[in-house]
């Protein structure tokens, strides 16, 4: 698959570079030795990832952000990133998972992008979501975690997972290790443990496993540090923010009340 997250792009003085990725378009213009940037989103659009150079000038109607560097930075690049909070996702309809069973969901995650200037020592100036996600709360009104709500459902059939150059698929397996039927109504997916891989047709994350141990016990998350096996994947493009070590994960989840709610 074609990637917009390639080497830095050169934008000559007086020209505008247009990065398109799903609903997001980022214009970067070099003018009088300064850099001007403008990010716009059209929620209905799904632009394939592309970069073009144009003579487009900065319009007075738009609010451009202006950056000045000590040295003239050459090259502008987009770096993929994951949302900065955990994601809450629901299956299309509540699902009952019998004891000692497991189920795999495919979660389509809209990526964020970091806009960087410079090649030798790149400087990140903006961290932009490709899709503006709605806030949601995971927990009790007095205690919990502020998350983003995914509008798309967690699906069991990979072909039904929402596609797009700005989306990555996370294979999420839920195992019911308890002795009771476990109703899955919504799941919290911490993005800190996600790494990004480039597949042949999609972006992928490392697979995640959530264990349900019982009704009054918090769920345990197991991020697997391996590329997904659904497609031929290249090397990891973006490492997880937190290393998925077993003990670290357990400590992290002692802070969580529950992965399920």
């Amino acid at each position: 698959m074609k990637s917009i997250f390639a080497d830095p792009r050169e934008i000559p003085e007086g020209k505008t570079g247009l990065f398109s990725l799903g609903p997001l378009q980022i214009r970067v213009r070099r003018q009088n030795h300064d850099w001007l940037t403008l990010a716009k989103r059209d929620p209905e659009a799904d632009h394939p990832s592309s970069f073009i150079l144009s003579d487009e000038t900065s319009s007075h109607d738009d609010t451009w952000t202006r950056y000045a560097f000590r040295e003239e930075e050459e090259g502008v690049s987009l770096i993929p990133a994951f949302p900065d909070r955990s994601l809450v996702v629901r299956p299309k309809s509540p699902l009952q998972l019998p004891p000692k069973n497991k189920v795999t969901f495919y979660v389509s995650i809209p990526l964020w992008v970091r806009l960087q200037f410079g090649e030798k020592t790149p400087v990140t100036v903006e961290n932009l979501p490709t899709v503006i996600l709605s806030n949601t709360w995971f927990g009790l009104p007095t205690e919990g975690e502020l998350c983003y709500a995914l509008k798309t459902s967690a699906v069991r059939d990979l072909s039904l997972a929402q596609k797009g150059d700005h989306r990555a698929i996370c294979p999420l397996t839920v195992k019911n290790e308890s002795e009771e039927v476990f109703p899955i109504t919504k799941l919290s997916l911490p993005t800190n443990y996600l790494g990004l891989y480039q597949g042949t047709t999609r972006w992928w994350t490392n697979p995640m496993e959530i264990l349900h141990l019982g009704p009054n016990r918090p769920g345990t998350l197991r991020p697997l540090n391996t590329p997904p096996s659904y497609e031929q994947c290249g090397k990891q493009l973006l490492p997880p923010v937190k290393k998925p070590k077993e003990d670290l994960v357990h400590r992290t989840f002692s802070g969580f009340r529950s992965l399920f709610y």
């Binding site: 809450v88 503006i132 996600l133 709605s134 806030n135 949601t136 709360w137 995971f138 009104p141 709500a149 919504k186």
Partner: peptide, 11 residues
């Protein structure tokens, strides 16, 4: 409420 990103989905 659904379209406003500052409005929480839950509660």
């Amino acid at each position: 409420a659904n379209k406003n990103p500052y409005c929480l989905d839950e509660p």
